[in-house]
Nucleic acid binder design. Structure first.
Lengths: 331, 331
DNA sequence: CTCACATCTTGAAACGTTTCACAGCCGAGG
DNA sequence: CCTCGGCTGTGAAACGTTTCAAGATGTGAG
């Protein structure tokens, strides 16, 4: 900036004015400074600016897993809101590693970002609470949070209920739930929802096939287990805790020569892009991912601007059932 | 830091030493400072540190589209290399929008990141060249670059050749290429590779079904067009420019009651996770995504440390064919 | 007891901005 | 002719670190 000032024959302060309040500078001077900036290839040093007091104009989203389309859609919603405010979003991929998550949180705090959105690998990480205590706005995304924090989630109990009610409606009596481990809050909630639907309809218990992960290969394995059951007890429909399981299950059914939905109806969860693209398009429970992200970002901004009198809110959205071929006969 | 120093009863310089060269401080003092840091909840201000001369310890990857699994895998490779060097990677999603891309580049330069990896939305953006001219290390990922820049790519001509040769090998004579628009370098290269394979085998011309995008719905549409062809001329195999097209095509075949691979063999490209998870697991051309990312990051670091005598390199990797059920009969 | 030397600590300069009180200048009004 | 107010532009302080030369303190040898 000193060089620019010298070249334009003005003072440092004037260059700064051109950059930050151009209306306070006469046209002639402004143009002179601008050409100096141009020819010298000057680029403002953000560190210095920030040090002097300007905010960082930056948010961060610490994502659980960037390779999961669900989260990248959430991220897009966040970015949209941030964009509208002239803020930039840094995506940090914790890869479900609490250690990496902690490292990122440290770094972001040192960087003095305006706020942190996080889908925690380790929700119990005391680093999150500590961060918030020191005054950093924090919003938890797609995971519950206590009353002392903002969060946005989707009602998984309702989702489980919707899926199961749909299967009951189209006449299924023996329904399997596929997913796990049960220790995951979301899995437990979806099971609870399914059981609620069954109870309301006065039907028997849910057959739960617990899996170790929520991925495609576990879906395939669940398919084998399902087929292994005696025909009299074998479920005619499966509600999967996510679409990856459902895709794996579908694949296994096709491989074994069973028809979907005639021999086995399948409902997934998340409604990822590939649910619709599957050979038999999958019925799935869709979450408002985009809205989730936008709302999270809005809460964060409210907290950042609200100061001490900010009220923490826990927003819960309703999922929606998207019915496709995997639960209805081909036309 | 001043507060920490006061509380620990030492000077500012000593606190800094504890943070940066703890071995130069006596154990007693160090412990005193550390507890002061702890109780005060002190967090170093990265801006000030950077301003004073420390580098930013930060790389950035400006991604074309975070929702494409291909790029997130590349990103993981980048992160891995960065991690090993104690660097952090910021993911910036341009969403294929040249304007957003330019905004990110500006910001990253102001932020003085150590280097930028980019899969450009607009390869011709003069901002990239300008950035490099001003001394910022830049590596182009998955897109070609001139000799004055480092880049990492995969040989798409070879990929097209591999896919087509495989189809020829298993006895197909009429082969369709599905993909577009042709203006995309990668599409053109894959077609060139396919034609090279055909020419080498002394076979006739490729049937090219050009699409407007590389997505699932275009794959479905291509399936309809394929079926509409007179049986005598109808191809028995399709080579799709990416897996999304292949999945759409597969879906349409299933819907129309055609068997894959018996009635129509399908080869995809990219080998995304869902290629293997499809009802009929897809044969696909796999790119070394992870390696792509790692190598890109390594080139970037070399450029960052190499100084003026750095030699720009354009690294080209070979793709690999992964054969699955969609081009071979069920067992 | 003194000196040389090693170890530990200190204080001030420097990094590149922004901000703010203030100085020049000019034209208008009295 | 003087004063006042409105524009422009200026210069120095401040932001929170790191670094480095130099000071303080302690140790061992002679």
């Amino acid at each position: 900036m000193k060089d620019v000032a010298a070249r334009a024959g003005v003072s440092l302060g004037t260059v700064s004015n051109v950059l930050n309040r151009p209306e306070r500078v006469s046209d002639r001077t402004r143009r002179r400074v601008e050409t100096a900036i141009e020819t010298l290839g000057f680029v403002r040093n953000e560190s210095a600016r920030q040090l002097r007091g300007g905010g960082s104009r930056t948010l961060a989203y610490v994502v659980l897993d960037t390779s999961n389309p669900f989260f990248t859609d959430v991220a897009r919603g966040i970015q949209e809101t941030a964009d509208a405010q002239g803020l930039v979003v840094y995506l940090c991929n914790s890869g479900d590693d609490p250690h990496r998550q902690a490292a990122y949180l440290d770094l972001l705090e040192q960087q003095r970002v305006e706020g942190v959105l996080i889908t925690p690998a380790d929700a119990a990480d005391p680093g999150i609470a500590a961060l918030a205590r020191r005054g950093m706005p924090v919003v938890v995304v797609d995971r519950g949070a206590g009353p002392d924090r903002c969060s946005v989630t989707v009602d998984d109990v309702l989702g489980g209920d919707l899926a199961t009610t749909h299967l009951l409606d189209i006449g299924h009596e023996r329904i399997a739930f596929i997913g796990g481990p049960r220790a995951l809050g979301q899995v437990a909630d979806r099971i609870a929802g399914a059981e609620r639907a069954l109870a309301r309809a006065g039907r028997g218990a849910l057959t739960v096939l617990e899996t170790t992960h929520l991925d495609v290969s576990e879906g395939r394995r669940a398919g084998e287990r399902l087929i292994g059951l005696p025909a009299a007890r074998r479920p005619t429909a499966a509600f999967c805790a996510n679409d990856l399981l459902a895709l794996g299950l579908l694949q296994q059914m096709v491989r074994l020569g069973l028809r979907v939905p005639e021999d086995m109806a399948i409902v997934g969860y998340d409604d990822i892009e590939f649910a619709e693209a599957a050979a038999v398009p999958l019925t799935s429970v869709s979450q408002p991912r985009h809205l989730l992200g936008r709302t999270a970002a809005e809460l964060l901004l409210a907290e950042a601007h609200g100061g001490a009198d900010h009220e923490h809110r826990q927003v819960v959205f309703d999922p929606e059932l998207v019915v496709r071929t995997s639960t209805r006969p081909h036309p």
